[in-house]
């Protein structure tokens, strides 16, 4: 036990620890997912020399710690292991699938065994990374091989039920966001309530699929009970990007006072705020394929609801908007109640 005062600012904030071999892609992952770096620009990232701690302003203020590649935390007296793993969180172990991974797996095994003895509740998420460019068969082969190597080792030491999960990821597509979504969802208390709200909304409004997104990272933190598929997640996530980008271009500069006054004058004669139907962003697009609408509704600074509607249902938008409004209020209350105090 450390005799330093605990760091209160990070108390209760879930922590994601990114570890793995040097050049496995840890810094790329955190830059792409949390700082919107275009994947192609990760080529310019420099090697990480010390732990990079990021507190991310988001719906649940989690922290991401990016570790330098070759550090062995259990073998290094300067690390306060308890401060590191004492909080709830997940260890994300990144393995470069395009490289020889035996050493990475061996180090991961040592780490898991060390953790299981003291912090059995830390979730261990293995990102089998850089799978872009690998064939589907090959990906599955690698995943199988790595899984077996880890499970065998754990069994040998009597930890059959260690909480280890595997994800195939790449920064060049949505798989990295999907993987983070799954990791984060495990850290949300009473996730089931959110899921039930979305499932109900889908039923009432005849939506095909609804996602609640963390807007900045584009991690989805809840969805309805229909199985999440990559295709619908991608389109919803890309739609958020479009809206963010368009808003940045046209919504981020101040209009002149004179202009505003003219807009509030005849023929409208109303304050701008009274001319709009909602203070929050509302968006909708209609696909040519089956006239299917996709809607987006801002919940607050961090969260947005995105849903795919059934064919030809644009006419029902007014009714849909009313139902969505109710759920948005519900989501806001949920986060008021479950907020760590």
């Amino acid at each position: 036990v450390s005799d330093q005062p605990p760091d209160l600012s990070s108390k209760g904030k879930p922590r994601l620890l990114l570890m793995g071999q040097r050049r496995s892609g840890k810094s790329s992952i955190s830059s792409v997912v949390f700082h919107k770096l275009p994947p192609s620009e990760t080529l310019f990232l420099e090697s990480t020399a010390r732990i990079q701690k990021d507190t991310l302003p988001s719906f649940m203020d989690f922290q991401v710690w990016d570790f330098p590649g070759q550090i062995d935390i259990f073998d290094n007296p300067t690390f306060d292991i308890d401060a590191m793993f004492g909080e709830i969180g997940a260890l994300i172990w990144v393995i470069d699938a395009q490289d020889d991974y035996l050493e990475a797996v061996a180090r991961l095994n040592v780490t898991i065994l060390n953790l299981q003895r003291t912090y059995p509740n830390i979730k261990i998420e293995v990102f089998i990374h850089k799978v872009d460019g690998l064939s589907d068969d090959y990906k599955l082969d690698i995943q199988r091989d790595i899984t077996i190597r880890i499970q065998d080792e754990l069994c040998d030491h009597g930890f059959e039920n260690a909480p280890v999960t595997f994800h195939l990821t790449s920064i060049y597509n949505h798989s990295i966001f999907e993987a983070f979504s799954k990791v984060i969802q495990k850290l949300i208390p009473r996730l089931g309530i959110l899921e039930a709200m979305l499932t109900n909304l889908c039923r009432t409004c005849r939506f095909e699929k609804a996602y609640l997104f963390d807007v900045l990272s584009k991690i989805y933190i809840a969805t309805d009970s229909e199985p999440a598929d990559m295709a619908s997640y991608e389109i919803c996530s890309d739609y958020i990007d479009v809206i963010i980008d368009v808003t940045e271009v046209y919504g981020s500069w101040p209009r002149t006072q004179k202009y505003r006054e003219a807009l509030e004058g005849p023929p409208w004669n109303q304050k701008i705020e009274d001319q709009v139907a909602s203070g929050c962003a509302e968006s909708c697009m209609v696909l040519s394929d089956g006239n299917k609408p996709i809607i987006l509704r801002e919940v607050n600074k961090y969260l947005a609801l995105v849903a795919i509607m059934k064919e030809d249902s644009y006419d029902k938008m007014p009714l849909v908007n009313m139902n969505v409004e109710v759920v948005v209020q519900g989501v806001k209350e949920f986060f008021e109640i479950t907020k760590p105090k």
């Binding site: 479009v242 001319q275 962003a281 909708c284 209609v286 040519s288 394929d289």
Partner: peptide, 30 residues
């Protein structure tokens, strides 16, 4: 780019028409 994501989602050819309408009301900004 978005046209291409729609094409991936719907499975329609990339050069096909992908959307007919997009609306966005950013509160009292624009």
């Amino acid at each position: 780019h978005f046209k291409q994501s729609i094409s991936r989602f719907t499975g329609t050819p990339r050069n096909a028409e992908q959307f007919t309408l997009m609306e966005h009301k950013a509160g009292s900004r624009f």
